[in-house]
Design a protein around this nucleic acid. Sequence first.
DNA 1: GATTTTTCAGGACAGTCGTCAAGAGATGCC
DNA 2: GGCATCTCTTGACGACTGTCCTGAAAAATC
Lengths: 206, 206
Amino acid sequence: MTTATRPDVRSGARGPDKFAARREELARATLVTLAELGYARTSLREIAQNSAFSHGVLHYYFRDKLDLIAEAVRIYEAMCVTRYDEAVATATTADELRREFSSMFVATLQTDSSLHRLWYDLRNQTRYEASLRDEVSEIEARRTDMIWNVVSRYCELRGAPAALSRELVYLTLDGIFQQGLDDLLDGTDPEMDRARTLLDEAFDSI
Amino acid sequence: MTTATRPDVRSGARGPDKFAARREELARATLVTLAELGYARTSLREIAQNSAFSHGVLHYYFRDKLDLIAEAVRIYEAMCVTRYDEAVATATTADELRREFSSMFVATLQTDSSLHRLWYDLRNQTRYEASLRDEVSEIEARRTDMIWNVVSRYCELRGAPAALSRELVYLTLDGIFQQGLDDLLDGTDPEMDRARTLLDEAFDSI
DNA sequence: GATTTTTCAGGACAGTCGTCAAGAGATGCC
DNA sequence: GGCATCTCTTGACGACTGTCCTGAAAAATC
C-alpha cells in the first residue's frame, strides 16, 4: 500500500530488495532530519542533504512526503520500545530493577534527546492532522506496555501489588520524562537531578 | 519593547490607546487562528481573515509575526490560570472541592479543547525554537500554581498532608488532561470517562 | 558490445509564506 | 476648505515548499 509504484514487479536479477534497502536508507535520513528539525521544518530538500542523493529521488522511492515520513516513523517505532526489556529480565531484586530503570531512563534522555523530542512533536502533530494518528497511537500503546512491564515486574519482586493503574503509571512516568526533556533542552538541570527525584517519588507512591 | 514603532508618541488627539485597543483586537484574532490551525499552519493572511482587516495592517501594529504571536500568547495566559480559584474559595469539604474541580476539569477540556491543544502545541514549539520559551515557562509555572492551589486546599480540608510533591501532582494531572484531550480529539471517549476515572485514582493517591 | 531497464540529478512549475512599499481614505486640526 | 497625520488596502518582492518532468548516468540483459 505505502510503497511507490515499483518500476517492475518481477525485479529480474539478484537482490529482490535493493529497492527496499534504499527505501530504508532514505527513511533513516528522514528520521535524522526529523529529529534535528522537527516535523514542521523538515523539507524534502533538507532530507536529501542528509542523504547521498538529490531531492528528486525521494519521489522515486516514495509516493509523497507523507509516505516517506510514515516510513521513518516506523523505523523509530522499531527502535524505541525494547529499551528496558533486558533490565526487566535480569534484575533479581526490586531495588536493582528500580536503579537500573532509572539510570537507563536518564541515559536515553540525554543520549537521544532529539529523538524523544521528535516523539512528542509527532504526538502533537496528530492533534491537528489525522494522517499519522494510527502510527502514533500504536507507539503510545507500546510505550505503555514497556512501562507497565517494568512496573509490574517491580511490584512482583517487591511482593506487593501496584497501587496505581497501568495507565496512570504510564502517564506519570511519561510526564517526568517530558519534563526532564525540557530541563535538558533549555539547559536547566543538565544532570537530570529533578527527574531523578521525581522518579524516586513516583516509585515510592506505586 | 515589543510594541511596533508607534507613528507618533505623543498620540495627539483623544484616545491615548486606540492603538493599544486595535493591537489587542488583532492579537485576539491571532489567538483564534492559532487555536484553530496550530502554530505551524497559522499564516498572517489567515489571521487577517479572522479579523476585519487585511494582512498588511498587521505590520502596522506589530513589528513582525513573532511579536504578534507573543501578544496572543499573553492574552491566552491571562485567560487560562484562574479557572479553579472560585471552587477553591467556596468549597467547604474535601469531597465538594474534588467534585467541583473534576467537573470543571472535564468541562473546560470539552469547551476549550482547541485552546488547550494550542497550549501543548506552543510548549512543543519551544523545544525547537527559543523565541517563546520565557512566555511558555511562565505559563507552566502558573499552571503548576493553579493545580497546587487546588490540591493543597483539598489536603487542608481533608486534614492530611499531601502524599505527593507539588511538581509530581502537576505532572500527573497534566498528563491526565493531555490524554483526555487526545481522547476528545480523535473521537474516543467523548464523555471523558477515562479521564474521570484517572482523576479519581489520582486524587485517591494524593 | 548493443539494447533495454533501472536509477538518479536538476530544473521548472504553481503555490504559499513573511515582509515591505506606495498610495488611497479617513480623521483631526487650523 | 485646506492641510497634516493616522489608518488601512493592495500589490509586489524574494525565498521556500512539494511535486513533476526531462534527460543523463548506471546497471542489467541479451
